[in-house]
Write a protein that binds this DNA or RNA. Structure first.
Lengths: 203, 203
DNA sequence: ATATATATACAGACTAGACGGTACAAATAT
DNA sequence: ATATTTGTACCGTCTAGTCTGTATATATAT
C-alpha cells in the first residue's frame, strides 16, 4: 500500500471540471490542470491513463450527481403528494429552489461535450444520450400519472412535453451564461410550472 | 486589383463553421480548415490576421443570419395579423416551419462560444450577449402588445417570458444534438406556442 | 518488535508531433 | 506596372503522453 490517492484524484476532477467550463475540453490542457492543482504530471497520468479517460470520469461523476438530484426530488415529492399534478409541479419546484440564489451561472457538462463532439469517444456521447433519456423517462412517468386524472386543454405531444424540462434546463444554462444572469434559470423553470399548471384540468 | 478573394473568404467561413460545430473552436485547427477547403496558409492569414479574427467573423456572420431570420419573421407576421396574440403565435410558427424537416440537428454558435468562453475576446462574448438581448427586446415588444388586449390567467414574469423563446431554442439545439433528433426542435417550439395560447385571455 | 518486501502513489525530465503564426516569393488581374 | 491574392517553407511554443526513478504505507516473516 501507499499514501491515499483519492484526494488527489478528487482534486483533479474538481479543478478539471471548472477548467472545462471555462475553456472547453480541448481548450483545457493537462498543464493547466497541473498548475491549478499543484499536482505533477506523473501523478496525473497515474490516475488517468489518457486525457480522454479524464473526460469519461468527469462525465460519469457529473451524471451521478445529476441523476442523484433527480432521484432526491422524486423521493421528496413522492412522499408528500397524493395528487399527481401537485407532485409534478412540486418536482419542478425542487429545481427552482436548487437554482435559486446562485452566485454564478452554472454549466452543464452534457452541453459542453455536445458542442465539441469529435473530442470524445462514441461511448461517452451515448452515455450522455442515455442519461438525458433517463430524465425523459422520469417525466413521461410523472406526466402519465397526471393524465390518468386530468385532461389537457389543448392537444399535446407527450414525448415533446417529456423533453421540455431538460430543454428548458439546458437552454437556461446557455442563456444564463451568455447574459451572465444566474437568476434566469429559476425564472424559466417557473414558466414551465405555469405551463403545466394551465395545461391540465381535472377530469 | 488581383483575383477576387471573396469566394476564398466565404469558403473559409463556411467550412470553419462546420468544423467548429464538430470540434469546438479551440479543437478546430487552422490546418484542418486548410485541408477541408484546399486553401493554403498564406491565403488564410491574408483573410484573417489571427485565428481569433476568424472567430469574430464567424460570430458576426452567424448573428447577421440569425437576426435576419428574426426580422423576416417580424415582417411576415406584421403584415398579416391585426390581433397581437395571433401575431405572436404566428411569429413562433415561422420558426416551427423553419425547423421542420431538418436532416441533421443544427447548432448555435452562441452556445458553442459560451461553453468555451476563455477562448474569445470579451467583445465577442458581449456581442453574443447583445444579440440575445435583441431577441429578448423583440419578444418584450410582442408580449407587451398582447398584454394591451389580453390578461394572463396566472401571474407572469414578463422578463422571464421574453427569454423563454431563446431558452427553448438553445435548449432544443443542445438536446436535439445530444439525442441526434432533429425533429425535436420544432416540437419544443410548438409547446411554447401552446403555453402562450393557454396563458392569455381576451380582456 | 523490527527488518524486509511489495504494491501504491507521486516527481519531473524528456520526446515527437501539432499548434498558431511569419516570411517572402510567386501568381494573377487590372 | 502594381496592388492584391495565394503558395510554401519555416519557427518557437505548447501539446499529450512516456520513462525512470523515488517516496510511502502496509503486509509478512522472523
Amino acid at each position: 500500500m501507499a499514501r491515499d490517492g483519492k484526494p488527489t484524484r478528487a482534486k483533479i476532477l474538481a479543478e478539471s471540471k471548472t477548467l472545462v467550463f471555462e475553456n472547453g475540453f480541448s481548450g483545457t490542457s493537462i498543464d493547466q490542470i497541473l498548475a491549478r492543482t499543484g499536482i505533477t504530471k506523473g501523478a496525473f497520468f497515474y490516475h488517468f491513463k489518457t486525457k480522454n479517460a479524464l473526460a469519461q470520469a468527469l462525465i460519469e461523476e457529473f451524471a451521478r450527481d445529476d441523476i442523484g438530484h433527480m432521484q432526491e426530488a422524486l423521493q421528496k415529492t413522492g412522499e408528500l403528494h397524493s395528487d399527481p399534478l401537485d407532485r409534478l409541479l412540486q418536482f419542478i419546484q425542487e429545481f427552482v429552489d436548487l437554482m435559486s440564489d446562485l452566485e454564478d451561472p452554472p454549466s452543464c457538462l452534457y452541453a459542453s461535450y455536445t458542442y465539441e463532439p469529435s473530442q470524445f469517444e462514441p461511448e461517452i456521447l451515448e452515455f450522455i444520450s442515455e442519461t438525458l433519456l433517463t430524465w425523459r423517462k422520469t417525466f413521461e412517468q410523472l406526466l402519465e400519472n397526471v393524465l390518468k386524472e386530468y385532461n389537457t386543454k389543448v392537444e399535446v405531444d407527450i414525448a415533446a412535453l417529456s423533453n421540455l424540462f431538460t430543454v428548458i434546463f439546458e437552454g437556461s444554462y446557455v442563456v444564463s451564461k451568455a447574459l451572465n444572469d444566474p437568476a434566469l434559470i429559476s425564472g424559466q423553470l417557473k414558466e414551465l410550472k405555469n405551463y403545466f399548471h394551465l395545461l391540465f384540468e381535472k377530469k
